Structures are given as C-alpha cells and as structure tokens.
Simulated scan of single mutants.
Amino acid sequence: AGAAEAFVLLARTLPVRRPVVVHPQFTEPEAALRAAGHAVGRVLLREADGFRLDVSLVPEDADLVVLGNPTNPTSVLHPADAIASLARPGRTLVVDEAFVDTVPGERESLASRTDVPGLLVLRSLTKTWGLAGLRIGYVLGAPRTLAALAEAQPLWPVSTPALVAAEACSAPAAFAE
C-alpha cells in the first residue's frame, strides 16, 4: 500500500540495532522506525554542499541506512555508485526512489542492481501517474527479505482498483507514454 507501508514493514521486520536516516529526506521512514521503538540516528547533508551525499558522514556501524534518490524535498539526485558504496556486510541499504521516474532515463536508479548486498529499493506509482489516493508501490530486493516483509503485511493490503491501476501503468502503452 505504497512506500509508507513499506517503511512500516521494514521498521517492524528488520532486526536492526543502529538505523540511520540521511536527511533532508521524506519523514515517513524515520517516523516508522521511531514508532517501532528504534533509536534513529540522522546524517544531515549540508546546504553549503548542495545537499550532496557525503558517504563519509554515514557511521560505519549503521546496520540500516535509508535515503531518498532523488531526495524529497531537495530534488538532489545522488550518484548511484556513491549510494552503492554504502553497502556493507550486515547492513540493509534502503533507497527510496519514489521520484526517480521523473528523472529522464531514470539515471542513477539502483532498481536493476543485483550486485549491491543488502539493497532494498522502494518505488512508487503514485507520482507520475497521479495515483496517490490508491496507495500503490513496490519493493525490490533479496527474495528472503521480501518474503519477510510480505509475511508481516496485513491481509489484503492493496485494493483491487490499485492493482488494476498498477497493471495499466505497467503496460507497454503506459511505458511509451
């Protein structure tokens, strides 16, 4: 039911000790983590640097790192290789790509990357297609992690109209549009 549900499922499901959210960022990931009882660290990107990702600011012992690409609210598009460099054994790297379909060619997307351990990419159909009220999105990642999220999901999380809209938005004609 959209990226907001994905953030809640991640917060409730993943066994994390030191989650970090890179800001400026959509507030839902941090709110979901806090609501699930996690003490959340923040990495604050500097306005003087154009809010560009500085991977050295992310603590080495963070076992969950969440960031948006492009970010909401700054619209900064971080290089995919810089984001991928945050991957570590034992770390989950969550990239919120809810707005990446507004970037021509979706450059810097990590959605197709299978070489980044612990990577979860959250995508949304609600921005480009104007489907915010239908709450439709998806998570890409390792099958075992996705199965754990699905198991924690409530029954019938996505409505029939949302599923029909998702199918329509995924059709060849919609892709061409």
Rank of each mutant, 00 (worst) to 15 (best):
A3G: 11
A3E: 08
A3D: 14
T13P: 06
T13K: 08
T13V: 06
R18C: 00
P19Q: 01
V21I: 02
V22R: 00
Q25L: 10
E28P: 10
L33P: 03
A39V: 10
V40G: 00
L45W: 08
R46N: 09
G50P: 08
F51M: 07
L53C: 05
D54H: 04
V58S: 00
D61G: 13
V66M: 01
L67Y: 01
L67N: 01
G68I: 04
G68Q: 06
T71W: 06
N72Y: 14
S75Q: 11
S75C: 13
V76Y: 10
L77F: 07
I83M: 11
S85N: 10
L86Q: 00
A87I: 13
R88A: 13
P89T: 14
P89D: 14
R91N: 05
L93E: 07
V95F: 07
V95W: 02
D96A: 14
F99R: 10
T102Y: 05
T102N: 07
V103H: 07
S109W: 06
A111L: 10
S112Y: 05
G118E: 06
R123V: 12
R123M: 06
T126L: 03
G130T: 09
A132Y: 14
L134A: 07
G137H: 04
V139S: 14
V139Y: 03
G141H: 11
G141W: 10
P143I: 13
L149V: 12
V158E: 01
V164G: 02
A165F: 05
A165N: 12
S170G: 15
S170N: 09
S170P: 03
A176W: 05
E177H: 13
